[in-house]
């Protein structure tokens, strides 16, 4: 059986996964969000059908511009360039480096296709299975390992109860907090989002507290 990766290899693996996804899709991924959308697939399909009506970004942009022009006049429909004393239009002069203003496309604001969320969950299974088999760790078993038996419970019925309650807390908590260890922890903290830093600090802190309680007290 192969040993687990050293910390630097794990860091590189998780970072490469997150960076590759963000760079190639201009999006974040989150496993709890994928679960949420797959489990509510009927409602998500309805949303996708509505979004499909506005799939052509140019049509939507033109419609918004026309509506804006109707409401506020033609001059407000498009961003106006600053006229120069010579009468030609140029980009406004800026001192120093230009501010970071990455382009926002409509497509990147829409949710990822529902089928891609199903694919994400299935691919995690395949990736995990390949890792377990190639490392010689794959073994069908009806327990969660010796450590779970020692720290939480070794009684089968109590184990089922603990796993189910733990799962409910994970599912409810991640959606209430708006993300999990991949969404908040990797993607959100990687973007230095305050909400993700707060959420990650709290769920890690609670994990530490509960683990110490299970290990030392209970």
């Amino acid at each position: 059986m192969t040993e687990y990766w050293p910390w630097w290899a794990g860091a590189a693996g998780l970072a490469l996964t997150t960076i590759n996804y963000a760079v190639t899709t201009d999006r974040s991924f989150g496993v709890s969000g994928a679960w949420d959308r797959v489990l509510h697939w009927r409602a998500e399909r309805r949303v996708e059908r509505l979004n499909a009506r506005f799939a052509d970004e140019r049509v939507l942009t033109a419609a918004i511009a026309a509506a804006t022009a109707d409401q506020f006049g033609a001059g407000s429909a498009a961003p106006a360039a600053h006229p120069t004393p010579h009468g030609d239009a140029r980009a406004p002069r800026q001192d120093g480096p230009p501010p970071a203003a990455p382009s926002l496309s409509l497509a990147s604001l829409l949710p990822a296709p529902l089928i891609s969320q199903v694919a994400l969950l299935l691919s995690i299974f395949v990736g995990g299975w390949v890792a377990a088999v190639t490392a010689g760790r794959f073994q069908l078993r009806l327990d969660m390992g010796d450590a779970f038996g020692q720290i939480v419970t070794d009684k089968p019925i109590a184990m089922i109860g603990a796993l189910f309650i733990g799962g409910v807390l994970v599912g409810f908590g991640t959606r209430l907090a708006g993300g999990c260890s991949s969404g908040h922890g990797l993607n959100g903290c990687g973007r230095l989002q305050p909400v993700s830093i707060v959420a990650t600090a709290i769920f890690f802190g609670t994990g530490v507290l509960v683990s110490f309680l299970l290990w030392k007290v209970i």
Partner: peptide, 9 residues
Amino acid sequence: LFGSGWAIS
């Protein structure tokens, strides 16, 4: 809730 559930399960 998430941190508690992660530590338990």
